[in-house]
């Protein structure tokens, strides 16, 4: 009797364990490095987007990105870079706000941003038109 109830108990436990939801494991979702607001595309074109890792004296390296815009008319833009580690988690920088810039007709301007931590591996550049 005791053995029977133990067997039933074990079977129930296994059944419950089988029903438990499996841990949600997703792979790293691919992010586009460049996110440009369509309104901005009328007034300027992003012509370059480079990235490099700068060697540091302590042996680590820091990700740096540079982009260039060619202006078709005098325009304002606002840009910011979001930084991510190897797991796709966001790494906080100094501030979350957009940086504003002006570009003149026919002008090419270069903008640079440096990652806040050596563990940053990827980034997303946002360009939009300020209101």
């Amino acid at each position: 009797m005791k053995l029977f109830s133990k067997t039933i108990g074990c079977a129930l436990l296994l059944l419950l364990a089988g029903c438990a939801s499996q841990p949600h494991t997703t792979g790293v979702i691919e992010r586009d490095s460049l996110q440009v607001d369509p309104d901005v595309l009328y007034s300027m074109t992003v012509t370059e987007l480079f990235e490099q890792r700068i060697r540091q004296p302590d042996g680590t390296s820091i990700l740096q990105v540079q982009f260039a815009v060619d202006a078709h008319s005098d325009a304002e833009l606002a840009w910011k870079v979001s930084w991510f580690d190897a797991n796709g988690m966001m790494v906080k920088g100094v501030a979350d706000g957009y940086r504003r810039a002006s570009v003149l007709l026919g002008q090419t301007r270069y903008f640079k941003a440096t990652a806040p931590h050596p563990r940053v591996t990827t980034y997303q550049l946002h360009i939009r038109e300020p209101q």
Binding site: P57, T60, I62, V94, R99, K112
Partner: peptide, 26 residues
């Protein structure tokens, strides 16, 4: 606050990129 954010962001990014705040002795 936006002016302070701009100045701090530029300063920190430049400091880090220049390697001035990276200790060669670890």
């Amino acid at each position: 606050y936006r002016d302070f954010e701009k100045a701090a962001t530029e300063a920190v990014e430049d400091m880090v990129a220049s390697g001035a705040v990276s200790n060669p002795n670890g």
